[in-house]
Design a protein around this nucleic acid. Structure first.
Length: 590
RNA sequence: GCGCCCGUAGCUCAGUUGGAUAGAGCACCUGCCUUCUAAGCAGGUUGUCGCGCGUUCGAUUCGCGCCGGGCGCACCA
């Protein structure tokens, strides 16, 4: 058990002795200001507050029942009622040695693993994946990796947009103006061309729009020719998706697109109608407010000029077609029946938060028993902006294609690595550029708090100074460089050497290694990969402090050298594991 | 109009149950390569945490009201 868990557990039982009815689940310890100790807890102050007790007195009482002699130095009460803990050096050393022996890597599997469906990426068929997809794809992948690391059973599902009104226009275009050679050359570009032309025609000419709608109706009715064309378009798009995902190293357990749920949509609407959850309105079918909430909190009401009016979620259009709410309801139902998850997590743009509020509310009304068994979570994120603070576009005003973006990142990284490390063979520089370029894009997207919009900046993400992927990869490469300079069997020997932690930089680094688990748990708790980014940046910084001040290969004696080698090795392993959890590869040299 | 999100150093952003003196990077200045990768490090300067009120022993964090910005608001997803 990791030291902070031992402290927590002892503290919780001490609290139970003093306050038998207290909920100790919030009695936690956190890394604190090193000046006060290695860990601190402020939980007693909030406990005292709700019970109107004197916080310092409560701390004193709890302290009297607290037995941590084997783990900590003397526990101190400070300020209004903080508890400060400082680990015994022997405990710190033993924890690192256990890690060096391969017994753990400073994190523990969840005590009660959950089954979690995570829904992310969701690109659209017949459209190029664009820069915006990096957000859902990168955050979603980092979260699935993080949750898996903690031992949860994760089912990732790519809810591809392979069904919907755009196919009416695409079919019309395919039948009338398809350029076969162009399709074979660049399928997505050709499909995009068809869509743009027909879309413009539909805007200008209502008759054209009717033609497109007719194609859509035929498709939805199962017309053989239209189905066959649709299948070809889907297959061509899947090739594009596979190529991007393979570059990004992103894997899905399933890719059940919208079309998969098509057979159940009619039933969903009929059931909603039968249960009086939905009703007809202006020829469409929608779910309206059930007046169970005050208007302000009711997702099915909106205020127009001082008056609360209906803002329903439509589940069937007046032309008989279905909306994405219908598909999403069928999807939740399918997922519950198929996987019985504890949670379903949607990594989708924050602008759709209104949709998810409605969706979750409808599901709770539709299948209230099932809804109690699952937590539906919308993990939203902000937009990517350009220098001007407006949505990130190319110079000509088009959306930036994801493939182009990745190419440019790798090219820029190649230029830098060729300048800085011209002595490396070209093939190796290319590989470094690939890892650094892709890592930089992913990392810069994961670093900001996901809720906020962020400004895209090539120079910043590829900079080697500051909180960037290249900086972290560089720290890793410097460690690996040390190991290249020693014999192989010596590096094996260090795994069993005993550690001596004496220099302040060694202690700081060692303590920080111990916080890896707290960090990945926080990421999983709040679905915020940026916590891990910041942890790794601090780790790299603390390693650099150690690296500058504590010679490893030229240490004064063999024991110190081996101890420091072990510390280097552990740091490298945590960096590698952390980056891998963010979906970022490492290089041995750069 | 109503709802949601945001407002922290000159710029870009962190800030984990409310907690101890609010932090990074960039930029600017000064140093450090006959010692493990200088793509690095050390030091210096930088704040009415949008404004006000409230809750609290304690508020950047919670509540209310303003101001400023973004997004959303029935047959697209």
């Amino acid at each position: 058990m990791l030291p902070h868990k031992k402290i927590e557990s002892a503290l919780q039982s001490a609290v139970r002795e003093v306050l038998p009815d207290a909920d100790v689940s919030t009695v936690l310890v956190r890394p604190g200001d090193p000046k006060f100790g290695d860990y601190q807890s402020n939980a007693l102050m909030s406990l005292a507050k709700t019970r109107k007790l004197n916080p310092r007195q409560l701390a004193t009482d709890v302290l009297a029942k607290l037995d941590l002699a084997s783990v900590c130095e003397k526990v101190e009460i400070a300020g209004a009622g903080f508890l400060n803990f400082r680990l015994k050096n022997s405990v710190l050393v033993e924890s690192l040695q256990a890690a060096a022996r391969g017994e753990h890597l400073f994190f523990e599997k969840a005590s009660s693993p959950k089954t979690i469906v995570i829904d992310f990426s969701s690109p659209n068929v017949a459209k190029p994946m664009h820069v915006g997809h990096i957000r859902s794809t990168g955050i979603g992948d980092a979260l699935q990796r993080n949750l898996r690391l903690l031992g949860h059973s994760v089912i990732s599902d790519n809810h591809i947009g392979d069904w919907g009104t755009q196919f009416g226009k695409l079919l019309l275009g395919w039948k009338n103006i398809l350029d076969r050679p162009a399709l074979e050359c660049d399928a997505i570009a050709e499909l995009e061309r068809l869509y743009k032309i027909i879309n413009a025609e539909c805007d200008a000419n209502p008759a054209r729009l009717e033609e497109a709608k007719a194609e859509l109706v035929k498709l939805q009715a199962g017309d053989a020719e239209n189905i066959s064309i649709w299948q070809e378009m889907t297959a061509l798009s899947q090739k594009q998706f596979d190529e991007i995902y393979s570059r990004l190293g992103v894997k899905f357990d399933h890719a059940l697109g919208e079309s998969f749920y098509n057979p159940w949509l009619g039933e969903v609407v009929n059931d909603l109608l039968a249960k009086k959850i939905a009703r007809e309105s202006e020829g469409a079918v929608g779910v309206f407010s059930d007046s169970s909430l005050p208007p302000k909190e009711d997702p099915f009401l909106v205020n127009r000029d001082g008056e609360w009016i209906d803002d329903p979620a439509l589940v069937r259009k007046s032309d008989g077609g279905f909306n994405y709410t219908t598909t999403d309801l069928a999807t939740i139902d399918y997922r519950l029946k198929t996987w019985s998850p504890d949670e379903i997590v949607y990594v989708v743009d924050d602008r759709q938060s209104g949709h998810f509020k409605k969706l979750f509310a409808i599901f709770a009304r539709w299948k209230s028993d099932d809804a109690k068994k699952v937590k539906l979570i919308h993990v939203g994120f902000g937009k990517i902006l350009g220098d001007d603070g407006k949505p990130f576009k190319t110079r000509s005003g088009d959306t930036v294609k994801l493939g182009d973006l990745l190419n440019e990142a790798v090219e820029r990284a190649y230029k830098t690595v060729s300048e800085k490390s011209s002595e490396l063979p070209e093939a190796q520089r290319k590989e470094i550029a690939r890892v650094v370029g892709l890592g930089a894009v992913k990392y810069s997207d994961l670093l900001p708090n996901r809720q906020s919009d962020y400004i895209f900046n090539w120079d910043k993400m590829l900079a080697l100074q500051g909180n960037t992927a290249p900086y972290l990869l560089y720290a890793y490469a410097r460690i690996k460089s040390i190991f290249r300079k020693i014999e192989v069997n010596l590096s094996l020997a260090t795994r069993h050497s005993s550690l001596v932690l004496a220099a302040p930089e060694e202690l700081t680094l060692a303590n920080h290694l111990l916080n890896f688990g707290i960090t990945v748990e926080a990421v999983a708790e709040e679905f915020r990969p940026n916590f891990l980014c910041n942890y790794l940046f601090e780790l790299a910084g603390k390693f650099t402090g150690f690296y500058e001040n504590c010679p490893v290969l030229k240490a004064d004696d063999v024991a110190t050298r081996d101890s420091r080698l072990a510390l280097c090795d552990l740091t490298a392993r945590v960096l590698k594991q952390g980056l891998e959890t963010l979906g970022i590869e490492t290089v041995e040299q750069m």
